[in-house]
Design a protein around this nucleic acid. Structure first.
Length: 334
DNA sequence: AGACATATCT
DNA sequence: AAGATATGTC
C-alpha cells in the first residue's frame, strides 16, 4: 500500500472526518484553491485521510448494519451509527457503499481471486455489465421474506439492493431505475392478483416520485418460453411474478423463473401466484424465496399463496440447481 | 447546510 | 483496484 495513504491518521479521535475540515456547503473555486494551498503548503501533514481497509470483519460489520437497518434506511450516516466503529467516517462508509453497490468491492484477500467456470465472463475486467445488480434497496413486499444469508456475496446487498436502490435508497441512476422495476398488477376481473406488488418506503416512493414505473405485468397469461427478465445476459430479476400459470406447468431454469445461462443473475423474489402443480427449477439463489409461501402479496390481501414446497437438490440439472416443487395448490383470491 | 449519489482521483 | 476525495443535487 502506498505509504501516503497512511499519512494522516485519525489522531484527533473524531469520529467524523478526522483531520479534515467538514465541508460546509459549496465553495467557490477560489476558496477551494486556497484550501488546497493551505492543505499542501501550510499544513503539510494534513493530506489524506487514513486509508481504511475494509477487511472481511469490517465489511461483515457493515453488512450487519445494512441488514439491521433494513431497506429504506441504508444511508451512510445510519450505517455509521449502527456500525459504531471508532474512527470510521461517514465518507468512508459512503465510499464503501458506492463500491458495494457497483459490485466493485472485493475483500482484500480476494482481490486476486480468479473466477472459474460459469460466471467468469463477468467476474473480471473493468466493470461488470451487471454492476448494478446489487445494493438496490428491495422494495417492500409485505410479508415476503428473503433469506439473504443464502446469497453469495455480491447479492448480499440485495435487500438493500433492490430498496438497493434504496438500499441503497436514493439512487437515481438509470441502471438502478431500470433495475428496480415496479411491478404493478392492475386490478382486473380476471383471476390475476389484484393490486399486485406495492412498494412502500423510500425506495418505491422514490421511483414513483420520479415518474418511473416498471412494466405493468398484470393480467399476463403465462406462455411457456416467455421470459420476464431477460433483456440481456446480465439480467437480474428482482421480481419474477408469474400470474395465471397453467396447470401442471413446469418452469425450467432457463425459463421464466431463473437465470441459467445468465451470468450472475440473482432472483430476489420469485413469486408465483395462481399456480397449480407448478414445478420450478432454479438456482440456489432462488431458494431465498421460500418465504414466498404463505405470503400476502399486497396489502389488500389480494393473494395469499398457501402452498408447501419441497426443496431438494436435483441431480438432473447442474449442481447449482435446486428443485422446488409446489405441490399444493395456490389459493389466490381477489 | 448537511446528507447523499456519483464522478474522479490517487 | 481499493479507497479517498471532488462535485453536484436535493
Amino acid at each position: 500500500m502506498n505509504v501516503d495513504y497512511i499519512f494522516n491518521n485519525n489522531i484527533a479521535g473524531d469520529n467524523e472526518e478526522p483531520n479534515r475540515e467538514k465541508k460546509r456547503g459549496r465553495k467557490s473555486s477560489k476558496e477551494i484553491q486556497e484550501e488546497i494551498h493551505q492543505t499542501i503548503v501550510i499544513n503539510q501533514d494534513v493530506r489524506r485521510q487514513t486509508c481504511t481497509i475494509w477487511t472481511d470483519d469490517l465489511h461483515a460489520k457493515f453488512m450487519e448494519a445494512i441488514h439491521q437497518l433494513g431497506e429504506g434506511r441504508c444511508y451512510p450516516k445510519e450505517i455509521l451509527e449502527v456500525m459504531n466503529v471508532p474512527g470510521l467516517t461517514r465518507t468512508q462508509i459512503s465510499s464503501h457503499l458506492q463500491k458495494c453497490r457497483s459490485n466493485s468491492w472485493r475483500a482484500p484477500r480476494k482481490q486476486k481471486a480468479i473466477c472459474h467456470s460459469l460466471s467468469q465472463a463477468s467476474s473480471s475486467g473493468t466493470r461488470q455489465k451487471n454492476s448494478f445488480k446489487n445494493y438496490g434497496a428491495m422494495p417492500r413486499l409485505p410479508n415476503l421474506q428473503c433469506n439473504l444469508d443464502q446469497m453469495e456475496r455480491g447479492s448480499e446487498f440485495s435487500f438493500s439492493a433492490p430498496n438497493i436502490n434504496n438500499i441503497f435508497a436514493r439512487g437515481k441512476s438509470l441502471t438502478q431505475q431500470l433495475y428496480h422495476p415496479q411491478p404493478q398488477v392492475q386490478p382486473q376481473a380476471q383471476n390475476n392478483v389484484g393490486g399486485g406488488l406495492q412498494q412502500h418506503g423510500p425506495s418505491f416512493g422514490l421511483l414513483g416520485s420520479q415518474g418511473l414505473q416498471g412494466p405493468t405485468i398484470g393480467n399476463i397469461i403465462y406462455k411457456p418460453g416467455i421470459t420476464f427478465n431477460n433483456s440481456d445476459h446480465y439480467t437480474q430479476s428482482d421480481y419474477n411474478l408469474n400470474l395465471n400459470a397453467a396447470h401442471d406447468t413446469t418452469y425450467s431454469g432457463s425459463g421464466i423463473m431463473s437465470d441459467t445461462n445468465i451470468d450472475e443473475t440473482i432472483n430476489y423474489y420469485n413469486l408465483n401466484a395462481n399456480l397449480d402443480n407448478v414445478t420450478t427449477y432454479s438456482r440456489s439463489a432462488m431458494i431465498s424465496n421460500t418465504g414466498v409461501a404463505n405470503s400476502t402479496i399486497n396489502e389488500l390481501g389480494a393473494a395469499n399463496a398457501n402452498f408447501q414446497q419441497n426443496i431438494g437438490e436435483s441431480n438432473e440439472h447442474d449442481d447449482e440447481l435446486f428443485q422446488v416443487h409446489f405441490d399444493d395448490q395456490v389459493n389466490a383470491s381477489l
